[in-house]
Design a protein around this nucleic acid. Structure first.
Length: 359
DNA sequence: GATACGTGGAT
DNA sequence: TATCCAAGTAT
């Protein structure tokens, strides 16, 4: 059968060419596998390695994660991006403790998908790796391999295409050796069937790959329709007190850098000025302004950073408080030297990085 | 169904 | 430098 041919060839390739020594491959513990799968969502292996090591050292099991504060979880996630993953990870840990007696329902795909941050592909990956059950994944690697193997036209972002890819991925998935197969098809996409310049010469299924046979590997899968990123400008306040602490504001749980601590941010410079004078009467801006450019997947952010140093007799320097209105979020002074366990947003970590370089 | 959500690696 | 895109999910 064709199906058997694909998985057999792939598994044979995996024996020699596959990755088998990644940290999360040395266990069948659903917790460890789960953390790795969440971190690896839309994130490359090399980026994850360091984060995973530190995270597992601090949160070695589900109970330790469930008992931790969200701030500390975000502290260990800061820099990885897509922070809803960290918030959902924390929520999920508490939910598994409360509703599943501390054990992931790895034998039930639907129950797994019901957990925060776990979708169909992640649920399948956790199940395949921890139990060896037959479960079908569809990540970026598999999409590319399947789209090429069957020469499926159309951008995978369209739901009809995704549906078809799921169906084809299911067809290719064998009934046995699921842990190996799941790793193998991801490895093939990551190291052989790459987005550009795929190494078809060393591909175990090249003889049956429609894209290869048609010489169209460079056209499949169909590229995402390109669009220009919109650009936004916002204004951030870099306020320093006499102790050289920075004023940070916790961002709302939704939106960019959700739950992380960042510089107080405003739509307009005038709003920033107004807020500053309200909080610290008699203060005036130093006039030092510099820019940070942040490029996200969906827009570019020009952040104008307005620096200001509070003098000693400024009112209430230790306890800034939010006014009701457009700013009513938690505020805190942050000491860069005694790093507390909170998640710092990119604008802050970039500032501190630049600062440590010059000093 | 389309959009929001981060950051860094690769080319 | 610019662009793509990565072990996707939630809304």
């Amino acid at each position: 059968m064709k199906v058997t041919c694909f998985s057999d060839s792939l598994l044979d390739w995996y024996q020699h060419q596959g990755r088998k020594h990644l940290p999360w491959q040395q266990t069948q513990d659903p917790y460890r596998i789960w953390v790795s799968e969440i971190m690896l969502q839309q994130t490359q292996v090399t980026t994850v390695l360091g984060y995973y090591q530190r995270f597992m050292t601090r949160f070695p099991d589900l109970a330790s994660l469930a008992a931790a504060s969200l701030d500390e979880v975000l502290h260990h996630w800061a820099g990885l991006g897509y922070y809803s993953r960290a918030r959902n990870l924390h929520r999920c840990a508490q939910q598994v403790v409360a509703e599943h007696q501390g054990a992931f329902p790895v034998h039930d795909q639907q129950l797994m998908e019901a957990l925060p941050g776990i979708g169909p592909s992640t649920a399948a990956a956790i199940r395949a790796f921890s139990t060896g059950a037959r479960a079908v994944i569809l990540d970026g690697n598999v999409k590319r391999v399947v789209a090429r193997y069957f020469a499926i036209e159309g951008w995978p972002g369209q739901s009809a295409i995704t549906r078809l890819l799921w169906q084809k991925a299911d067809q290719l998935t064998p009934d046995t050796r699921l842990a190996e197969y799941t790793q193998a098809i991801m490895d093939l996409g990551a190291t052989c069937c790459t987005p550009r310049n795929p190494q078809c010469g060393s591909c175990p299924v090249q003889e049956h790959c429609q894209a290869h046979l048609q010489g169209r590997t460079d056209q499949l899968p169909t590229a995402k329709p390109g669009k220009k990123l919109p650009e936004h400008t916002r204004h951030a306040l870099l306020l320093t007190n006499p102790a050289q602490h920075l004023l940070l504001e916790q961002r709302p749980a939704n939106g960019i850098w959700g739950g992380l601590w960042s510089l107080p941010e405003f739509d307009e410079a005038s709003q920033l000025q107004q807020w500053l004078e309200q909080q610290y009467p008699g203060s005036s801006l130093t006039g030092d302004v510099h820019q940070q450019l942040h490029t996200f997947s969906h827009y570019r952010l020009q952040l104008m950073i307005h620096s200001h140093q509070l003098n000693t007799d400024a009112a209430n320097p230790g306890e800034p408080r939010a006014e009701p209105g457009y700013h009513s979020r938690p505020l805190n002074w942050y000491d860069p030297d005694t790093r507390s366990s909170i998640g710092l947003a990119a604008p802050v970590s970039r500032l501190l990085q630049a600062r440590s370089k010059t000093s």
